[in-house]
Simulated assay, not measured.
Amino acid sequence: MTRFTRRGLLAATVGTVGAIAGCSGGSSQSEPAGQTETATPLPGQPLSTPVAGDPEADVTVAVYEDYACPHCATYAESVFPQVREDYLTDGTVRYEFYDFPIPVDETVSWQAASAARAVQDNSGAEAFFTYSKRLFANQNQLGPDTYADLTEGLDVDGETVRAAATGELYRPTVSSDREAGIDRGVQGTPTVFVDDEPVEWSEIAYEPVRSAIEDARSDG
């Protein structure tokens, strides 16, 4: 069962980044400098960016998310499915996922990200996006058992994913995404870029993303 820290709950309050709604935070100081690794990170990192849709599409949508952020869960369950239906199935958009642990929760934000990256590393991007969706759908129950259970039907061993999560074996990949996001100006989650331009919204909704994609298509 997820146990949100007081710091995490404070971070989960609605904030704005140039009128972008979501969980706020994102300075480089948010990642504890003295974090003790519970296991040696796996080699071959950072992993490549998970991509859905057409990798060669003219329009790129890049999204930064924290698995413990309730606003990211809203985005994952109400906005991303519409983006997938309208723009990914026909190859109009290249869709990129980036980890950005604020962290909303000191443990879950990092462990859930490592769990998802273990799925990517073992089964590829399609399985990653399926697993990522499951993480957000089960946000209130995230923990070692859940990380293992959510692999059902995927070509990856649940215990492998559990170990990756609890040991934060993919922290180098997750941290790399986070630092790149900070360099890009990300200060909260979810943050969406369409062709490098941030989507501005006062609430998490599909229309601002759709409008930004259509503007990018027109400009192209």
Rank of each mutant, 00 (worst) to 15 (best):
A165G: 00
A137W: 02
P101W: 01
D177L: 08
F128K: 09
Q82W: 05
W201T: 08
A127N: 10
K133I: 11
A62R: 05
L135E: 01
S78Y: 05
G181Q: 09
E197Q: 09
E168P: 08
F193A: 01
Q111E: 12
S78Q: 14
Y67R: 14
A137P: 09
A164N: 05
V156Y: 04
V174F: 02
C72T: 06
V199D: 05
R162I: 01
T173W: 11
G188L: 13
N122E: 12
Y147C: 00
Y75H: 07
V93P: 12
D90A: 10
Q187V: 04
R171M: 04
N140K: 15
E85N: 15
S176P: 10
R134V: 02
R178V: 09
N122M: 11
S78W: 03
S175K: 14
E85M: 06
D149L: 10
V174H: 07
V79Y: 13
D157F: 12
E200D: 13
P101K: 02
A127Y: 12
R162Q: 03
F97W: 13
D157M: 12
P144S: 03
E152F: 06
V104L: 07
V156E: 00
Q120L: 14
S123N: 14
R162G: 00
C72E: 08
A73P: 05
T89V: 14
S132L: 11
G158A: 05
L169Y: 03
Y75F: 15
L169F: 13
A62W: 05
A116M: 06
Q111Y: 07
A163V: 03
F129Y: 06
D149K: 14
S176V: 06
D196R: 12
D195T: 08
Y75V: 03
T60G: 00
Q187R: 15
D145N: 13
S114N: 13
P103M: 00
Y87G: 00
E65D: 04
